[in-house]
Nucleic acid binder design. Structure first.
Lengths: 192, 192
DNA sequence: TAAAAAAGAATGAACATTCATTTTTTTTAA
DNA sequence: TTAAAAAAAATGAATGTTCATTCTTTTTTA
């Protein structure tokens, strides 16, 4: 195993430990020493890979956000009809949030608290552009309600985060049928 | 001013300071010393009113949750038709979240992070019973989709939290028209 | 063998909570 | 009614701990 691979592995271990610990305890209740221990590394080593704790969390956020949107848009074709395109993206997002729950929980926590630097969060939003483009087309074709992106996002996408958190807490177990129901609710809320 | 009133005032000041500071910095980045300073009280005094920091936040959550649901259901009449009843409750909730933004933000943060003891959060959920009853009736009358309360909540109510947070961040300014659009999306997502 | 990477221990700041006093309020007795 | 005494409430200053970060030494790699 080369030096580079070893470095990548170590960085990945740190990111992974950060996600798990922050998910369970929150940012400020997660000491660097615990992150180090979980990643099997000395606390001092973290500072070879990251500037400080804030930077570690910012980078973790950016990493996972990119992974998330890559997955969401991997099968997206900008030329398909709006309805079909939306269903595809929505289901990819649902799949990510439910299969890759740890990562999605982390993103949700970052987006709902003052944990991440605001400038970093802003950058993360840009990754969603393909979905915003689709919605713009949908509005033009009068397939989607003529309302703002925020509103569409609030009803079509954001509820998945709530369902995911509820599932993580053990409040419910989302089956294929539930996903289909959720998709219908999402589409009903934004379609014209 | 009697002794009792003075105590109540002091407790209220502590609760208010807690909300403001936790909203802006999160639970763990809010020191007791700052809460004390903002409430114009010695740090030691907090411990006359609350057992410890966790208890302070738990009690704050319970207080605000009760205030929220009282407001939401104040004008609710269990005998009105489902659609009308839902519109009324929804609009009361929207009003609370947008007018009493500080309090609503605090609840959202509590519900989206491991900040509050889980047992306390569970208690808070019970306050929503009138809405769950309405939904049950709606399902029986085939006015509302035959799906779980979690799903209905995720689409009909939770998006308001997202919109509220976005507004607080300055991403958008919710007008009467936006509220109406949001209501339509909420109803469209759950109606049969 | 030199340079880079990693380690563990050390440092100093921040913090929740407690402690020893002081201030305020209430009670008692003239 | 008043003022002294007792009780309660409030305070600011410790206390001891936890933690992010840095420093010095050791280990690994080139």
């Amino acid at each position: 195993m080369g030096k580079l691979q070893k470095s990548i592995d170590k960085r990945n271990a740190l990111v992974k430990a950060t996600i798990e610990l922050v998910n369970n305890n929150g940012f400020h209740a997660t000491p660097m020493s615990k992150i180090a221990k979980m990643a099997d590394v000395s606390p001092a080593t973290i500072y070879l890979y990251f500037e400080n704790k804030q930077d570690l969390v910012n980078q973790t956020y950016m990493d996972i956000k990119a992974e998330y949107t890559n997955f969401a848009f991997a099968t997206h074709n900008p030329n398909t009809p709006v309805k079909e395109g939306f269903e595809n993206i929505w289901k990819r997002i649902a799949e990510f949030k439910l299969k890759d729950c740890e990562n999605a929980m982390f993103l949700a926590q970052c987006d709902n608290t003052p944990m991440i630097d605001e400038s970093i969060r802003q950058k993360g939003i840009k990754h969603l552009q393909p979905l915003l483009d689709l919605w713009e087309r949908g509005r033009n074709e009068q397939v989607i309600k003529p309302v703002s992106d925020y509103l569409l996002y609030a009803y079509a996408i954001n509820p998945l985060s709530f369902l995911m958190i509820s599932q993580k807490r053990g409040a419910l177990q989302l089956s294929k049928k539930h996903i289909e129901e959720a998709y219908q609710a999402a589409w009903d809320s934004i379609k014209l």
